[in-house]
Design a protein around this nucleic acid. Structure first.
Lengths: 194, 194
DNA sequence: CAAACGACTGAGCGATTACTCAGTCAGGCT
DNA sequence: AGCCTGACTGAGTAATCGCTCAGTCGTTTG
């Protein structure tokens, strides 16, 4: 692993763990095991380093979700949506730093006047919302999901599972216990009234 | 309004708007219109200033929610829950700084080794979760809400409306449009299957 | 062999940070 | 009048910040 990759790896961890402002280049260099000036040899400043971190985070998350969408074994669209909820929670645990980074405020502040940042954030959120939406529409075609607004419902389901990840982050409530109830709630939102 | 109160007011705005680390005491003093040393005359350091801000935020939010809970005019528990969802969204707009502060990471980091901070966060979240829970239980008594786990459902509804507030903060989606769909989803979660 | 190159570093820079302290000043008490 | 007290401030301080730059290496190229 090159020193540049090591810096990116540890920067992801630090930006996620303590935020952009509280991440000092001196400490990052110390943890990574390089000279502080090596950081500025590979990245022209701290903000560009952050953008590179964000780009990798986007790549990885989008790739994982698209791979999961291609995987088979779902009986229906409803089944697929429930699988997505579980996969989101799993991925947020497996890629803790990536999701924690996206839960921070800095990227959204930066996105206000940095196009690259905005593009990366939009890409990752559109990807996730689209996949939820497509699963819902698939369920509407196979009859497992009622005729509800697909995009809006996708976003509502997203807020639910993303909120659960936040509970997990702050240890506010046992996420595993709440997950079962969340899936049950999602099912009620999706299925036909009868 | 005393200088101390002015400092607290502007500190709330700055901590909410740019976070703890990016809030400099020099800039806060400038905006407030006092000397920087005046801040340290009233508060022994930046962290204590933040804790004082957090205490006021907690007081105000808890007070508003408890007042709303006492207000009459709800036909049923289900009606009350739906009213609470709307009130949460309204309050998050009316007290933008307070809610934005609670959406930042710093208070939860600080809470890990600061008891006062932890108590304030627990108080405000318990208050909101309890009020949702009591409304659900009231609905279960009057028959408008099905026999579902009250606490867990309260938390799920909370994640939904809190996620909506985040959408509003970052302008990711028109919150007003999504709100109607969220209330419809909440109703499906709460009512009896038939 | 010499020159050029990319990767990397130690030393140091000006700016900013949170915070201190001696001292000013107005108002109330004796 | 003299004194005390609480509110407030200007002028600092050491430490840390992001960042620069001249220069050292080892490898590749002419």
């Amino acid at each position: 692993m090159t020193k540049k990759d090591k810096i990116l790896l540890m920067a992801t961890r630090m930006f996620a763990g303590k935020g952009f402002a509280d991440t000092s280049t001196a400490e990052l260099a110390g943890i990574t095991g390089v000279a502080e000036s090596t950081i500025f040899y590979h990245f022209k400043n701290k903000e560009e380093l952050f953008l590179e971190v964000l780009r990798k985070v986007r790549e990885e998350i989008v790739q994982h979700f698209e791979e999961h969408e291609q995987s088979q074994g779902f009986e229906s669209g409803l089944d697929k949506v429930e699988g997505l909820l579980g996969y989101y929670l799993y991925l947020a645990g497996a890629m803790e730093d990536a999701f924690l980074l996206l839960h921070r405020h800095y990227p959204y502040m930066l996105a206000q006047d940095n196009e690259v940042c905005r593009e990366n954030l939009e890409a990752v959120y559109n990807c996730m919302a689209d996949i939820f939406q497509r699963a819902i529409e698939e369920g509407q075609r196979d009859g497992s999901i009622a005729d509800i607004p697909a995009r809006k419902t996708a976003l509502i389901l997203f807020t639910m599972v993303d909120g659960l990840v936040r509970f997990k982050t702050y240890n506010l409530y046992d996420a595993g216990t709440l997950f079962k109830e969340m899936v049950a709630s999602a099912r009620k939102i999706l299925v036909h009234a009868h």
